[in-house]
Amino acid sequence: MLGGECPKPCKGKWPTPPFDPRFPNQNQTRNCYQNFLDYHRCIKTMNRRGKSTQPCEYYFRVYHSLCPISWVQRWKEQIKDGTFAGKI
């Protein structure tokens, strides 16, 4: 699941991500990046504990709604290569 493929309930319409008071400005770049990190941290933590990754779906939906696909693809490549700058 760390690859970022769609969790099972991806079918249907996705609403716009709700307001996040940590990112009040129009520019949502940091919001995109933070939710990408939060998703991967959540997956890692849940897998380590042996629990369901269902709660991580929220972060997945938000970063897929906010982030350009090219950014996500580049970040996934960097994670795979071990050169990603974020702490996951």
Rank of each mutant, 00 (worst) to 15 (best):
M1I: 07
L2G: 11
L2I: 04
G4C: 02
G4S: 01
P7K: 04
K8T: 12
C10L: 11
T16F: 00
T16A: 02
P17A: 01
P17Q: 08
P17V: 00
P17G: 01
P18D: 09
D20G: 01
P21V: 03
R22D: 12
F23C: 10
P24V: 15
P24S: 13
P24M: 11
Q26T: 09
N27T: 13
N27F: 10
Q28N: 15
T29P: 00
R30W: 10
R30P: 05
N31K: 02
C32A: 02
Q34W: 13
N35H: 15
F36Q: 04
D38E: 15
D38W: 14
H40G: 07
K44G: 09
T45M: 10
N47H: 02
N47D: 04
R48H: 14
R49T: 08
G50L: 04
S52W: 00
Q54S: 04
C56N: 07
E57I: 11
Y58G: 15
Y58S: 14
Y59P: 05
F60S: 06
V62T: 08
H64E: 09
L66I: 15
C67S: 08
P68K: 03
V72R: 04
Q73D: 03
Q73G: 00
Q73M: 00
Q73T: 06
R74T: 14
W75L: 07
W75H: 04
K76E: 12
E77G: 14
Q78D: 13
I79S: 05
K80E: 11
D81T: 05
D81C: 02
D81S: 09
D81R: 05
D81V: 11
G82I: 12
F84N: 06
F84I: 06
